[in-house]
Design a protein around this nucleic acid. Structure first.
Lengths: 274, 274
DNA sequence: CGCAAAAGAGAGCACTGCTCTTGCCCTGCG
DNA sequence: CGCAGGGCAAGAGCAGTGCTCTCTTTTGCG
């Protein structure tokens, strides 16, 4: 796979006679007809731009999967696409901006996977605990399938620090989905949300819990919202340890282990066994 | 250029290397006195080498804290130390090797912090649950104090992949410590380890649990060892979400929230309330 | 149709990791 | 005491990077 050689990518500086018939610039998998006509209300120019932008992100994603975020190189992406590196800056003002775009896409992809699993569980009228399990499994499976993109969003923050505002929306989709599962369970028929009257003895804890509940789910008991927030992070603790290799030579049967741990998590937020 | 002054307080689980301060060049091996006193058959040459190695790691750690692992530059380290970049390769064969050394040190530093907290709790004859809490708090506090080094070891794997064998020992210290806490509690007087007879219905899960228990703590019930492994990873899920900013604008009072979550974790491995 | 806006090409700067060669000087040996 | 050898630093150099600037070409839109 490292034989990343593309024949026409060399700087054949053949100026003067402008017969650039050999230009390899076209975004790769575009059908030849794509160039033909765009009678769409969306401007043809904008269309082409979106296409190139997508091609850049696709190639960047490929390199991400090959070598990891640290080795992602704008020049290599440009080279592979048959353009010159400076041209790429017409689409992304910096390498970090490209990475940010990939981060947003990854959050969205993970969120969509989780929401799809949830929707399927709802359609199958699965019990609340089954829905919880389905969402968690979807997260894990997405992470195992796309480890580098998972590392991009749940590993060390790669760019300067504190991802831009654009990321906070997509980033919270999984968390909100977990809230939804518990909220549905609480409204549903037989499921009861515990929490133990004694849980919020501490005053600071009660304050925090009430603030958290007010922000996330005013219809749920504050103690449950605290447990939910913790479970949210703990789910990603489980997934990160598996994806980042901390479970190597320790946990063998990961799916079984994961199911068990995540069921315990469900219990901790009040989703009882069937 | 010396604006990079910081109190030399670094985790440095290894020797603290009397950093040779402002000297621009030359490790200055021997004041006459220094050469006279060799307490060990450790040669003066090896001594100087260890000192320079330590200075390199210290400076690298400083840059790590400033800019993160991605921006760590061998040349900048060498520049700051007053040597030329190529000289640095006498001490570390590559940038990744330097990073690996920092990773091992970070694991050791974190492990020492956690073990210190545990030892203190034992000396104070704290209850098992208090010991568990002390260890978890120590982990969190270390991570908050040294976020970049935490990211180095619990964030995305930065170098090629799969850290070398050298890291597996130090990496498991915290996990083993958690096992120790529960094991002590199980042997102790009043603490009872639950697990519920029904927990291991599934056959694959029982197999996995028994294998895990055999490897880690043959004297503990398999179900507890499973819960312990999960809690281990979940602890780092909590810490990672805080350090990596996932709790920004969501959790305000982090210590209180953390204590609550970690107490719940203690319950999940059978450490009862006082 | 024509033209301004958009896009690409290419050179260039400052930086990086890493290699290789050259010489210095300390050290351990005879 | 002297001297060879080896650890060590210095410097040049290579290939690659992110990013900027200028110039030319293209192309969609009014």
């Amino acid at each position: 796979m490292t034989s990343r050689n593309k024949p026409p990518a060399q700087p054949s500086a053949q100026r003067s006679t402008q017969s650039p018939a050999q230009r390899p610039t076209r975004p790769r998998p575009s059908t030849p007809a794509a160039k033909a006509e765009e009678p769409k209300p969306l401007g043809a120019r904008a269309r082409a731009r979106a296409e190139v932008t997508g091609a850049i992100k696709d190639e960047a994603r490929r390199q991400l999967a090959d070598e990891g975020a640290a080795k992602l190189s704008l020049r290599a992406v440009a080279r592979e696409l048959g353009m010159v590196s400076s041209a790429l800056y017409r689409y992304f003002p910096s390498r970090d901006e490209l990475l940010t775009a990939l981060i947003v896409d990854a959050y969205d992809s993970l969120g969509a996977a989780a929401e799809g699993a949830h929707a399927r569980a709802v359609r199958a009228e699965a019990a609340p605990r089954e829905r919880w399990l389905a969402v968690c499994r979807a997260v894990r499976e997405w992470a195992v399938a796309y480890p580098h993109e998972y590392a991009l969003i749940y590993g060390s923050p790669v760019p300067g620090y504190s991802a831009p505002r654009t990321t906070v929306g997509p980033a919270s989709r999984v968390g909100l989905l977990l809230v939804t599962v518990v909220r549905e369970a609480a409204q549903g028929p037989g499921v009861q949300v515990p929490g133990g009257g004694e849980t919020l003895r501490d005053e600071a804890l009660r304050d925090e819990a009430e603030r958290l509940a007010a922000d996330l789910a005013p219809d749920l008991p504050p103690a449950v919202v605290v447990a939910l927030t913790a479970a949210w992070s703990q789910l990603f603790g489980l997934v990160s340890f598996e994806v980042f290799g901390q479970f190597n030579r320790i946990v063998e049967d990961r799916p079984v282990f994961f199911d068990q741990a995540v069921s315990q998590l469900a219990r901790s937020v009040g989703l009882m066994d069937d």
